[in-house]
Design a protein around this nucleic acid. Sequence first.
DNA 1: ACAATAAGTCAAAAAATTATGACTACTAAA
DNA 2: TTTAGTAGTCATAATTTTTTGACTTATTGT
Lengths: 103, 103
Amino acid sequence: MTTKKEVESEQTCPAQAMLKLVAGKWKPEILRLAVEQPLRFSSLLRTLKGSNKQAIAAALKELEETGLLEKVVIKQKPLHIEYYLTKQGHSLIPVLQQLEDIG
Amino acid sequence: MTTKKEVESEQTCPAQAMLKLVAGKWKPEILRLAVEQPLRFSSLLRTLKGSNKQAIAAALKELEETGLLEKVVIKQKPLHIEYYLTKQGHSLIPVLQQLEDIG
DNA sequence: ACAATAAGTCAAAAAATTATGACTACTAAA
DNA sequence: TTTAGTAGTCATAATTTTTTGACTTATTGT
């Protein structure tokens, strides 16, 4: 979402823009989990304690829109959808790891 | 600030915690500027277009509290206060740089 | 056509973040 | 002791983000 504030103040810091792509309550954790295996909506819902469908849906949508996750629909008995970490998504992982190491 | 949400959901992702330290509208930019020279309140206010004293004050305070900036009071004719990037603050710079490179 | 399961959407409320305007504190010099 | 300059604080308002609960779509097997 492009906010009114953003339009008015005309972002200039590139790092800030990038940080927004992984910021938010659930996105870093989701990316971390995606390293290990493709993600499923319901599985995330179970795994991420304190989350809810809307939070998960919003996070997955944003991560997909910004090209960090790829959505794959599997037309099976009960509809399955998997989210894979993209190449760009993978490139973020070591950066997140460094952040952890510093903190 | 420790929020109600944080207390309830008991954060578990370490990267998320670290991201919070540099997230926000002005913190990344302030850190970047601090690499070049010690920062002054009024100077930041002039430099960061679209900012205001409260935003700057809050950002500097948080960056100081989390140990990324160090505050130095210079008792001179008109009171001067400088903010220096700490060792830990410096260690974040390459990470921010990497984020820029990816984005 | 209907049921069961997975994956969502939508509108509204609650909470957090950011912005605004008025006011305060400290220092040194006159 | 008043003044000028720098660095803020405080309460409140506006905006954005996150949460909540009810509802919808898609698929396949029966």
